[in-house]
Amino acid sequence: MANENSSIQLVTNGILKENPIFKLALSMCPAVGISTTVMNGVMLGIAVLFVQVFSSVTISLLKNFIHPRIRIPTYTLTIATWVTVIDLTLAAYFPAAYAQMGIFVKIIVAFAIITMRLEMFACKEPVTASFWDGLGMGLGFLLGMVVIGFVRELLGSGAILGYDVLGFKPLLFFILPSAGFFVVGLMMGFFNWIEAFYAERKKG
């Protein structure tokens, strides 16, 4: 399988065809909880991207060393290590952003998307393919977070990246966690609609 898939295909697969948030519907907790502004989305997206790529590469490198009976604990250990690294780094060099999203960085350990990619892909495939797959998944997650954050920040507080663009707050509701589900639902529908649209065009 790895030979058939080029690196570009692996990356776009994660961004579009198997987008973690809109297609696989994994890791919805952060997508709903933290994506209240674009900046939060970007920061958490980058953290997940980092953890995903490093964990995928680590597991792929060590796949012969990991005993099959204890592979899940090893995945968790690997993820926890890289999460701690990014957590300490963000806390040290980006204190302002970290203050807002500190607890969400720590729960990356439990993100379904990362464990799932390690189990489905990295433990079977070579290192380079795992790297591209991790990059694709991370970018897909980053994209999802930014899009949701954009919609919620614009509608909820009338601003983009903290700059007031509308001058008023259209719907305060969008800042609240429950609105995250609405935005994710609408985005899922939108993604599926685009896909259906192109499939239709190809056919006829």
Partner: peptide, 9 residues
């Protein structure tokens, strides 16, 4: 200095 209140509220 430090808080974790809801953004926007």
């Amino acid at each position: 200095m430090e808080h974790e209140e809801d953004p926007g509220l």
